[in-house]
Design a protein around this nucleic acid. Sequence first.
DNA 1: GTCTATAGTCGGATAGAC
DNA 2: GTCTATCCGACTATAGAC
Lengths: 222, 222
Amino acid sequence: MAKDSKERLLEAGTKVFAKDGFEGASTRKIVKEAGVNISAIPYYFGSKDGLYEAVIRRIISMVFAEQGEKASEISAALESGKISKERARGFLHDLLRGFAEFLLSDRASPQMAQIMVREQMQPTVVFDIIYKGAMEPVHQTLTRLVAHLTDLPSDSQRAILCTHTIIGQLTTFKTHKEMILRRSGWKKYSDKEAETIIDAVLFNTDAIIAAHKKANKKESLL
Amino acid sequence: MAKDSKERLLEAGTKVFAKDGFEGASTRKIVKEAGVNISAIPYYFGSKDGLYEAVIRRIISMVFAEQGEKASEISAALESGKISKERARGFLHDLLRGFAEFLLSDRASPQMAQIMVREQMQPTVVFDIIYKGAMEPVHQTLTRLVAHLTDLPSDSQRAILCTHTIIGQLTTFKTHKEMILRRSGWKKYSDKEAETIIDAVLFNTDAIIAAHKKANKKESLL
DNA sequence: GTCTATAGTCGGATAGAC
DNA sequence: GTCTATCCGACTATAGAC
């Protein structure tokens, strides 16, 4: 069936692209994994690039279902009315924790992470899909929470940069995984290590926010 | 001359590997850039992999000359005797600033950064060269400074993780460059943006360290 | 829609003359 | 040490039968 082959290619593509990256993944390997003929790729997706783009869209829609909706709800709550600092802090910790648990689990394959990084440093058409579909909504919501907690305007450069440094504390455990494994003596990230990392990052996050709030207050008084 | 061709290949290899990454760089392109015959690669380096490894070694030795020696001096100072917290903080800021200026400049090409990330997530024989030659000495020195400033043992997990999160605040501006460019509205990292980033990271670093010191003190009293 | 066969390209490595 | 010529494998994409 038509629908079947197309769907099988998407699933196999996700698997193989995640495992081998774009260049490393050959169409031959993908069709073998999918159990379909090699001509099905140009037929359904135009080309290898077309399949790749479709796979990325599919992943994004799945990740968004998991993370992005939470972000949207929080954004709505923030816009609708005043929420307490306590509640905002809870939201922030929740979002960061959810992201960290995904990032440190096996669901986020190193190859997919590599693709993300490659797109960050040399963006192609795929970056737009990833950015608008997943990164922007989450980053924006985090920035709003940080802004709310520090009394900074949510579109201020300071709030944006501060948010980015907070996220960077987490992503470095993925992008510089081998380094921290060697330095810490860990073999891998199991639940225990993930919890340790999350604790450290949330601790630092609170410290950073408190310092920004204090500095911001001081400046306002001048 | 023999020495000439070999050296030319190393230089061209650095250029092309940095620009296109390992897979993207073809031996044909490298020899064209170097102006030598294609057989020179297997002849001098055994294979493309051999050339790549040699290029990495060469880069490391250069980066180390720039950054690593500073780290070694600081380590020596830390070991030799007590240094003041004020001076340790100065060292820490210096090291982070030096690293940041390199990372955010054009000298650190996106392709090289990508290679580093790939090696972090799927280490090959090359990772060892990078780790021992450049990462470990700097990371270790930073950890010692952080430990000194927070009164934590320098081999404690908390000091190591804390140091890693501090570094992660910087590296994210390289590994997630496009994201922060879009969120901040910047076109690129010029001196002004680099300075803004460094300010933000050093500010956060002080905040994180102060919080850890305070928490550590509290725990010691129990 | 699905298949086989193959075109056309590019990659790394090698043989062997000079 | 350096060259030309070539091998051989892997890749994506297409043509055309069914």
